[in-house]
Design a protein around this nucleic acid. Structure first.
Lengths: 160, 160
DNA sequence: ATCGAAGGTTGAGGTAGTCAAGTTTCGGGT
DNA sequence: ACCCGAAACTTGACTACCTCAACCTTCGAT
């Protein structure tokens, strides 16, 4: 868990080590990156009349149908919340509910063809992000991919 | 724009080199990273009874007072939105409005001491993020910082 | 002195998020 | 077989957030 080398969190930047990159700066950069991605995704979704949360739900469903409960867990929100979000997506035909054959309590949410097209279009419409990525070399993209995967994708597995 | 096919910048796909990292995968990773950061920040803010938007506003104000209009621009939301957000922060004493001495239309929003303490505590309370960052070496943190700065911080300057 | 534009607020309408019920269904214990 | 707790989903109330249109005050320039 805790890296034995540089314990830089919660300590001061007064650490004189030249190798230490203060997590304060990195946290600022991560924060700014998140805000930028969030804005880009939100505006790409808005171009289709969809919200950030709706786009997030559609994106998760790309990987296959999922029960309401699992969706809520993945999106880290209350189950009662999913009802409204899926209601609105269903009203637009981007998604539909299907009773589970094995458990009558469960309703599986399935991405429709229109829904798949919408989420693809939203991902393609994140122009700010695509444009930014184009300024990196292949090697840099690969490096970034590796670092972020270790940071956050693995973290998600741990949490779930 | 085919974001679904392999090569990203400049359509010349002549060299299908093994080095090419598909932007599709990288976009997935960026998306997941953003969701993870968003969730971590939201829960750290919630521990103080604050919302994501309120925390974002407080964080911007760390850099100094700002007029409502500038805040709205930085946070990429409507000016009418800031009124409510700042109202609620002001009601808790985390922030206060100050009339601009040079332009009577402008109200500068200033971070109070309690507000500065709150935002520091929120940043320190992003345990998932700090824990993840601890798994990187100093060199990796530095690399990540550099890549993300180029991707998003510079982009913000361009946009504004 | 006037007029257009900018900064800020208000109000209506819709989406999201949390919490506390409530219904249906499942599954284990006796 | 019957009960009872728990799980999956929904509903309702309440707040926050976001967008848009309208409004008031102030500024700056003509």
């Amino acid at each position: 868990m805790s890296a034995t080398s540089g314990t830089n969190r919660s300590t001061e930047a007064s650490d004189t080590g030249p190798l230490t990159v203060s997590n304060v700066m990195l946290l600022d950069t991560l924060w700014a990156s998140m805000v930028s991605l969030y804005a880009d995704l939100t505006s790409a979704a808005a171009a289709h009349g969809l919200t950030y949360s709706q786009a997030k739900a559609l994106n998760v469903l790309r990987q296959g149908p999922a029960p309401m409960r699992a969706l809520a867990g993945t999106l880290r929100c209350d189950a009662s919340n999913m009802t409204g979000i899926i209601d609105r997506l269903e009203a637009r035909g981007l998604v539909y509910r299907e009773p589970s054959p094995t458990d009558r309590r469960v309703k599986n949410v399935v991405l429709s063809e229109d829904g798949a097209a919408a989420v693809s279009s939203i991902r393609a419409g994140m122009h700010g992000t695509h444009q930014a990525l184009d300024s990196l070399s292949d090697a840099e993209r690969s490096t970034l991919e590796g670092l972020l995967s270790r940071l956050f994708v693995a973290e998600d597995d741990r949490a779930s």
